[in-house]
Simulated assay, not measured.
Amino acid sequence: MKTIASKTIAFNGKFFGAAPTGVHRVAEQLVAATDALIAGQAGNDVDYAVVVRDSVEVPPYRNISCVRENPWVRRIHRIAWEQCYFPLARRKDFILNLCNLGPLLHRDSATMIHDAQVYSAPESYSLGFRLWYKFLFFFIGKRHKIIFTVSEFSKRELIRYGVASADKIVVVYNGCDHVLQVQPDEGQLAALSLKPRRYVLALANTQKHKNIGVLFKAFAGAELNGVELVLFGGATQADFENLGHVVPPNVRFAGRITDPELVGLMANAGALAFPSLTEGFGLPPLEAMALGCPVIAAPFGALPEVCGEAALYADPFSPDAWRLNILTALDDEATRQSLISAGRRQAGGFTWKRAARNLFETVKAVTR
């Protein structure tokens, strides 16, 4: 039997210890699923390691070792660590970067670029952020052996903007089954005075492409007076109002909440509203579907690809369309049950085991 040449595949663990984001969640789940997948792989003399800075906490993996750099490395800025120290320290390894960026000096690498929104939605990012990401994307796309992305839509966008050629880009869909392992905490319902099925969840995110303003306009209508809009995430009411949004009185801000609290909110919500003008994937709609929460989404970006026929779609520029679809999801029992059943089936096709297998097999092919 042909075996893989001795090599270490090193996960770039820069995301451990950083503020939680959707991209970091994907990276954590992929590493954990890969750890489970490589158990008992006969004839495989490849070592797997996640490389982190000395002080951060890492889950106790069974088959992936944790390499902690020397304590003095803490003093190095995270960009210098990723671009200079990390590739030099692991120069003999194949480096796998899962959070958009990776070291330019290390050609024997693969990087997951989740979307091309610094090109397609530039108004959502600062000038410095856009320039830095475009600079790195240009060289990563040319120098690294594989570019992973999370949807066919994102692949087309990366090709369109010249980040990488089609033959180098491999699509690895996210999973969503992690939410089924979380014990729900329903404390937020009492804290926010919410009635099950009489509130709609959405992201508290001020980025322009997230398009939360259309929901404020929808919930300002008299038809939704008895329904609450619950926003979860870091943005506050003041953040939205400072950008000129008028926040109606039936909007609640949950703030940053734990995974159990989010699962508790999703499992009891009337619907999840996701009006984004573009998305590289769109994980919250699938998480909601897995938990039996109907989804209303904009037909833009990767959302139709990911949600399929299991969601209601609304014009992202029409508050009336959102009001109508929200009332349908909440009050039309036949439609609601159809959405719940279709959503569970749709979500069932997106597992971290499948994602890890696609990642694992692709990397294995280039490290023989």
Results as ranks from 00 to 15, higher is better:
residue 199 Y to G: 13
residue 307 C to M: 05
residue 208 K to A: 12
residue 241 E to D: 07
residue 202 A to E: 06
residue 271 A to T: 08
residue 327 L to S: 05
residue 223 E to M: 10
residue 292 G to I: 12
residue 314 A to I: 02
residue 220 A to T: 12
residue 206 T to P: 06
residue 336 R to C: 03
residue 246 V to L: 11
residue 338 S to C: 03
residue 314 A to M: 04
residue 335 T to F: 00
residue 240 F to G: 01
residue 227 V to I: 15
residue 204 A to D: 06
residue 257 I to S: 03
residue 335 T to S: 05
residue 261 E to V: 03
residue 254 A to L: 07
residue 205 N to L: 08
residue 286 L to E: 07
residue 268 N to F: 04
residue 277 L to E: 00
residue 318 S to W: 03
residue 214 V to L: 10
residue 273 A to E: 02
residue 238 A to R: 15
residue 327 L to P: 01
residue 288 A to K: 12
residue 329 A to V: 01
residue 218 A to G: 14
residue 274 F to E: 00
residue 328 T to H: 03
residue 295 V to M: 10
residue 327 L to T: 09
residue 277 L to Y: 00
residue 316 P to E: 06
residue 314 A to Y: 01
residue 274 F to H: 02
residue 244 G to F: 08
residue 244 G to W: 03
residue 237 Q to A: 13
residue 298 A to Q: 00
residue 259 D to K: 09
residue 233 G to V: 06
residue 204 A to V: 09
residue 214 V to P: 05
residue 280 G to N: 01
residue 253 F to V: 11
residue 319 P to W: 11
residue 251 V to T: 13
residue 232 F to H: 12
residue 283 L to T: 07
residue 214 V to H: 01
residue 205 N to W: 08
residue 317 F to V: 08
residue 227 V to N: 07
residue 295 V to T: 13
residue 247 V to W: 08
residue 227 V to F: 04
residue 308 G to L: 13
residue 315 D to V: 09
residue 295 V to S: 14
residue 294 P to K: 14
residue 265 L to Q: 13
residue 199 Y to A: 12
residue 328 T to N: 11
residue 249 P to V: 09
residue 222 A to K: 15
residue 274 F to W: 03
residue 246 V to E: 09
residue 291 L to Q: 11
residue 224 L to S: 11
residue 310 A to G: 14
residue 298 A to W: 00
residue 282 G to A: 07
residue 322 W to I: 07
residue 287 E to L: 02
residue 336 R to W: 02
residue 229 L to P: 07
residue 279 E to V: 01
residue 238 A to L: 13
residue 248 P to V: 10
residue 230 V to R: 02
residue 210 K to R: 14
residue 270 G to C: 10
residue 334 A to D: 06
residue 328 T to L: 03
residue 264 G to M: 12
residue 294 P to T: 10
residue 255 G to D: 05
residue 210 K to H: 01
residue 224 L to I: 12
residue 320 D to T: 09
residue 286 L to C: 11
residue 211 N to Q: 02
residue 272 L to H: 02
residue 202 A to D: 11
residue 285 P to V: 00
residue 292 G to L: 13
residue 256 R to V: 09
residue 242 N to K: 15
residue 203 L to D: 07
residue 224 L to R: 13
residue 338 S to L: 01
residue 277 L to P: 00
residue 332 D to P: 01
residue 238 A to D: 14
residue 219 F to N: 13
residue 276 S to G: 08
residue 281 F to Y: 14
residue 239 D to H: 09
residue 213 G to H: 14
residue 200 V to L: 14
residue 231 L to C: 10
residue 215 L to C: 14
residue 236 T to S: 15
residue 228 E to A: 13
residue 301 G to C: 00
residue 262 L to I: 08
residue 202 A to S: 15
residue 237 Q to I: 13
residue 313 Y to A: 04
residue 256 R to F: 10
residue 222 A to E: 15
residue 331 D to Y: 12
residue 247 V to A: 14
residue 326 I to F: 03
residue 306 V to C: 10
residue 288 A to G: 15
residue 259 D to H: 04
residue 338 S to A: 12
residue 263 V to A: 08
residue 293 C to W: 05
residue 328 T to W: 01
residue 283 L to C: 09
residue 255 G to Y: 03
